[in-house]
């Protein structure tokens, strides 16, 4: 049992670190009683080593994931008023100027660090975008499974709270749209009805972040190009 716990703890460290110090740490852990505080100490330090070894894109992506998760939780507990920045963050995070700058910046950084092909910069941006999209995909998965309901807010509508409607995801919609719905008689043909309550399709929400990935790749590549330009400018001109 003890050996199994130690092996699991060691697996939390990055592979390079394990190769260098894994044997020594294992030896030390085997020689002492494995108390909760020692397990906690090793666990905490393993996470720290992971963070130190992580690529900048992973760190930025995890940061974005936390921001989006925070927005997602607040959307359910206390939805923000229509038109606020936090509602835009959840619905159009791929189109926000700051987010695009982040992707381009990461592309620049990746190229300056690795000096490799441009696709590495593109892939770094894709990684950020994917991680940032996880809370949205989570919302989609909860909608598909029926755990999360949807309320659509138009301009002027008052946000509903968690206490009034249970687990509800608030979606902000600026336009009156036509929905194809079946009215009363299930055998009747579908009719187009003007409605403000067209909820987004759960599957659409689930897959939406994946559709932002190609654009993120291009923003990252653009950053890589900028990085290449910076490198060329910095290099002394040969005679």
């Amino acid at each position: 049992m003890k050996t199994r716990i130690i092996r699991a703890l060691l697996r939390l460290y990055p592979a390079n670190w394990r190769r260098e110090y894994g044997g020594e740490l294992t030896h030390m852990l085997l020689a002492r009683p494995l108390t909760a505080s020692i397990v906690g100490d090793v666990f905490r330090n393993a996470l720290w080593q992971r963070l130190r070894a992580a690529e900048i894109s992973t760190l930025v992506g995890l940061g974005m994931l936390l921001v989006m998760l925070n927005g997602f939780i607040w959307n359910i507990i206390a939805p923000s008023p229509y038109g606020s920045e936090s509602s835009m963050l959840l619905q159009d995070f791929g189109g926000l100027n700051l987010y695009i700058l982040l992707l381009v910046g990461c592309g620049v950084w990746t190229h300056l660090r690795r000096r490799g092909k441009l696709d590495q910069s593109g892939l770094a941006a894709v990684k950020i975008s994917f991680l940032a999209g996880i809370p949205i995909m989570l919302a989609g998965a909860l909608m598909v499974s029926g755990v999360l309901g949807v309320i659509v807010l138009g301009p002027g509508d008052i946000p509903s709270t968690f206490h009034q409607h249970g687990f509800t995801y608030t979606y902000y919609d600026a336009t009156l749209r036509s929905c194809w719905i079946r009215v009363q008689d299930p055998t009747a043909p579908l009719k187009a009805v003007q409605s403000t309550t067209c909820p987004p399709a759960p599957l659409g929400v689930l897959l939406a972040p994946l559709f932002t990935l190609p654009a993120s790749y291009l923003w990252g590549m653009l950053g890589g190009l900028l990085g290449r330009w910076i490198v060329r400018r910095g290099r002394p001109v040969s005679a």
Partner: peptide
């Protein structure tokens, strides 16, 4: 000294018990 000896020595002269994870993070 090796890791285990460092841990014992630090405990003896400073009264501080370094956890194994903390010790190897600092060594790294």
């Amino acid at each position: 000294k090796h890791g285990y000896a460092i841990m014992g020595d630090v405990e003896a002269f400073a009264g501080v018990t370094l956890g194994p994870g903390t010790l190897y993070t600092a060594i790294t």
